[in-house]
């Protein structure tokens, strides 16, 4: 059995779905370290894949394992090593932040005194040291999300599933959490789903792109970038005349800015000509947004919000 995260023809058909495959023969293997981020549109199969890997859901066909532990046959052993914050998880309003984390640790079999200490430590890690004894119902939506993240941080699990962990967080809190997750991923394996492509770009060592239940892209950001036709992006401010492009795609956004996706040689030539004309522009390698749209819709942005 392969080490790391290994999926082989993983398929899921929910009862009552008229045979629609929520996951359709997903196969891949990657090392179980760092951050693996799953991206995809709504209904792409991200949560289904996470729930199968987190031993919450039975696959219809295929198999999956993490570090040689099969999610079906070795679920008991695997559950000693995993922790998960589901997508729609909520904190109980009648409990305090500390009671939430403490009771989660008790579920994991940690003793009361140790759980109590760890709960306060984990809440401090997410910046909630002053709200430890606050009732969850009095906390903001983003803060409640942090309490849930603190539950898994407090555990000794070395494989952590976070299904859209930063949804509802303000930009500053989100970046604080990114820092925390980056530190956490030094000695643990994080599997996270997200709708924020810049989040995956910032955090992930490996990115998986799911589309209609199929894995349509997998690799590091550089590997995904290499897999698409154009690797460079030039952005021209609104009102700037785009230069002639021999090879590439030119699109104009709603705000009037023009984007040119092209290859390295062409990007150099266009840059040179724009500089000579004194045109203001920016040049960068294509972002995960560009890659995602290209892979999922062949470059068309229509109906492609992840």
């Amino acid at each position: 059995m392969a080490s790391g995260l290994d999926c082989d023809s993983l398929t899921k058909v929910y009862s009552g779905s008229k045979g629609r495959r929520a996951l359709d023969g997903v196969s891949f293997n990657l090392p179980s370290k760092g951050v693996f981020s799953l991206i995809g549109m709504n209904g792409a199969g991200k949560t289904t894949l996470v729930r199968i890997l987190a031993t919450q859901l039975q696959p219809t066909a295929g198999r999956a394992s993490i570090d040689g532990l099969d999610v079906m046959k070795d679920a008991k052993k695997l559950r000693d090593r995993i922790a998960c914050v589901p997508q729609e998880a909520r904190t109980a309003p009648f409990m305090t932040a500390k009671q939430t984390v403490l009771s989660y640790l008790l579920w994991r079999g940690v003793g009361y005194r140790e759980a109590s200490t760890k709960a306060v430590e984990a809440l401090s890690m997410v910046g909630l040291q002053n709200q430890v004894n606050e009732l969850n119902r009095k906390l903001s939506g983003g803060t409640r999300r942090k309490v849930l993240v603190a539950t898994v941080l407090s555990s000794d699990a070395d494989i952590i599933f976070l299904d859209e962990p930063t949804t509802g967080l303000d930009p500053i809190s989100r970046r604080e959490l990114w820092k925390l997750l980056t530190n956490l991923a030094r000695d643990r394996f994080l599997i996270l789903t997200t709708h924020y492509l810049e989040e995956a770009e910032e955090l992930a060592n490996a990115i998986g792109i799911l589309h209609r239940g199929k894995l349509v892209g997998l690799g590091t950001l550089d590997q995904l970038r290499a897999s698409v036709r154009y690797q460079y992006s030039l952005m021209l401010s609104p009102g700037q005349e785009p230069p002639p492009v021999r090879e590439g795609e030119v699109t104009t956004g709603g705000a009037g800015q023009t984007q040119i996706l092209t290859n390295e040689t062409e990007a150099q030539e266009i840059s040179k000509s724009l500089l000579e004309k004194g045109t203001r522009f920016s040049l960068s390698r294509v972002s995960l947004d560009d890659i995602f749209f290209h892979i999922v819709h062949g470059g068309s942005e229509e109906d492609s919000q992840p």
Partner: peptide
């Protein structure tokens, strides 16, 4: 209530409990 509204059962399933 705990299972559907808080997803607590999913969190506990993915634990040694």
């Amino acid at each position: 209530h705990f299972k559907n509204d808080f997803k607590l059962q999913d969190m506990v399933v993915s634990s040694p409990s």
